[in-house]
Amino acid sequence: MPHDSAGHTPIDMPDDPDARIIRALKALLIGRGFFSADDVRRKIEELQSPAPARGAALVAAAWSDPAFRAHLLADGKVAAAERGVPVLEAGLIVVENTPSLHNLITCTLCSCYPRSLLGQPPPWYTSKAYRARSVRDPRGVLAELGWTPPRGIAIRVHDSTADMRYLVLPRRPDGTEGWPEGDLARLVTRDSMIGVAPALSPSAVGRDPSGI
């Protein structure tokens, strides 16, 4: 079968002036022996390897264990470390959604994000549009992303400007009473921990709600 190359732009590395400077600097530093190309590759792999599953495990544990939930909300970094999830990049503040309050995370100045827990941020999170509009019109942003919180729920935006990183503790979905932590974690999406969506409902993962 002939290879069909029509309608596909070749994928290429960016070639803007910044990218050229970075490549030249990298080549110089490797040439002078400061680090190796393998060091660079390994560091990129390390940065990109944490999956949102780390954050989801913390949320599921908080839903299951009231004492851990209290600890996580009071001292996120220490509580996470005790569950074997070190947060190395900064402090950690966990903010809890309730029936009357919904939290949303952003970083208007750059791209601060709890990478230890969620991996690399999605492209929209670092876009100028999200960074500008999430603080000015959070309800409009949420609606565009497909979720309209009721007017009775206050929205609180957290702008991570300095030495803290933020994780949203979403509300536990109805119909999950008695679920083991592993099953609960499947309901906790990356976006629910950024605060742009609620956690999934049991039916979204193909499970009937408990007790029905």
Binding site: I93, V135, R136, D137, P138, R139, G140, R151, A154, I155, R156, V157, H158, D159, S160, T161, A162, D163, M164
Partner: peptide, 26 residues
């Protein structure tokens, strides 16, 4: 370093959300 809570209605003229909406920043 402190976290400061501001009312969205105080930050943006013509803010479109609820009067209860807030923003917290370090």
């Amino acid at each position: 370093l402190y976290r400061v809570r501001l009312r969205q209605g105080d930050l943006w003229s013509g803010y479109r959300g609820s009067g209860q909406d807030t923003l917290e920043i370090e």
